[in-house]
Simulated scan of single mutants.
Amino acid sequence: MKIYHLSHTDLDGYACQFVTHFYFKNVKFYNSNYGKEINENFNVIINDIERKQNLEKAIILITDLNLSLSQCEEFDKVCKEKKIKIFLLDHHQSGEECAKKYSWYLLDSKRCATKITYDFFSKICKSDVELSNFVDVVNSVDIWLSEDKNFELGKVFLGLIANAKEINRVMFKEAQVFYIFFLFERARKFIDKENSNVLLDNATHFIKKDFFTKDRDDTLANLISNFVVEKLSELKNDFTIEYEGYKGILTVNIGNTSIIGNDFLIKNPDYDFFVDISSRKTLSFRANGKIDVSIMAKNLVGGGGHKNASGGLFSAFKDSANYDYIKAQILDLIKSKELKKENKDVSANS
């Protein structure tokens, strides 16, 4: 049996996955905001399950996400056709209509999704005092129990996860979830300590440094950049694109494009250019002397700049939480420009 766990992108959502991870090891995690992103993730999950070719032993678990009736109808139909088990644990009152219609939609507005998930699995498997204490902290802040003893620590938990943006969740899904779990493991050690909220708040910077530090200490910013470049180098085959015979890498909302782009190209001399696309539809191009990216930017999106650092706006770009969908748009853009150039050359020679 393998669990495919889709959850929200906040404290409660990730904490649900932390609970699932405590009880089961054969789990693949996905995270989503609301709207079309849920559908995108569901389709990715179905594709992942079908690649395993073992549909009857797959379970889709959805937590801390409120589905619409149309989403429930679609998911229910697909899972029945493919004989995949699905169940949802949530606490948002807006899902009441769905809960009444679908038996797999379990709703309880009196507890946060993490507590629902813990209560559900602890009854099936076993209870755990330390995990239960962690769940109580999440519950206190998620449903805003301001008089609860855990509330102030819960607020720090909330900020800890809300500000855990160091690892890109679109490109490095597994590493990002592992990072969140690391933060949870460290944070829950502060439960029941005197002034626990202040202590955790003071320790947050060093907890993050502990995760990213390898051989030597450095600033947190440098440690994060080194981590990202290592990850890009490790997974570069997945992110590779080509343009007019040159090989490059495509990133999404990577941040610090100049530093990361330059470091990646130095450490990976077989690559000629580096492109990052942001949610604002901007493209940032970087090179290391092998290709003039100002010409590349001009040809692709009417942009420009310098030989080794340029930019532009891809106005037709549609943002997504699915890297493959984003990459497909860039590949289509490159292909369309290449075809346009070929047709122009044919016309000029005829």
Rank of each mutant, 00 (worst) to 15 (best):
H91V: 01
C72E: 05
F22G: 03
F42V: 06
E40N: 01
A321R: 08
K341N: 13
H21D: 11
Y23M: 13
L283T: 07
D90Q: 07
I277M: 14
L158Q: 12
T114K: 02
A175L: 14
S196M: 11
G312I: 09
N256V: 06
G35S: 06
H8G: 01
V138R: 02
Y271L: 13
G289E: 15
D276P: 15
L88W: 14
I260Y: 02
S196I: 12
A297M: 09
I241D: 01
Y246A: 15
D217C: 11
K193W: 12
D319G: 04
N54W: 01
E194S: 01
M1F: 00
D217P: 10
T251P: 15
I46M: 04
Y14W: 07
R188H: 11
S32G: 05
D64Y: 02
L283S: 10
K281N: 13
L88T: 12
I241S: 01
A221C: 03
F184M: 03
D292T: 14
S132C: 05
T20V: 15
I84F: 09
K341V: 07
S68E: 04
L232C: 00
I3A: 02
S279D: 15
N253V: 07
N197P: 06
L232M: 00
I277R: 12
F273I: 13
N139L: 04
N195D: 15
A328W: 01
T240M: 08
I326F: 11
K281R: 13
K165A: 06
L223A: 05
R188W: 09
F134E: 09
H92Q: 06
E50D: 11
I277P: 09
A175F: 14
R186Y: 14
A113N: 04
L106Y: 10
F172Q: 06
A164L: 12
F24H: 13
E194D: 04
D108R: 10
L339D: 03
G303I: 12
D276C: 15
D10Q: 02
D148G: 08
L55H: 00
I167C: 06
I241K: 01
E234P: 05
A203G: 03
I266Q: 14
E130T: 10
S127G: 08
T114F: 00
L131K: 14
L220K: 00
S146Y: 05
S278E: 15
I291F: 07
V177W: 02
Y118F: 12
W144C: 13
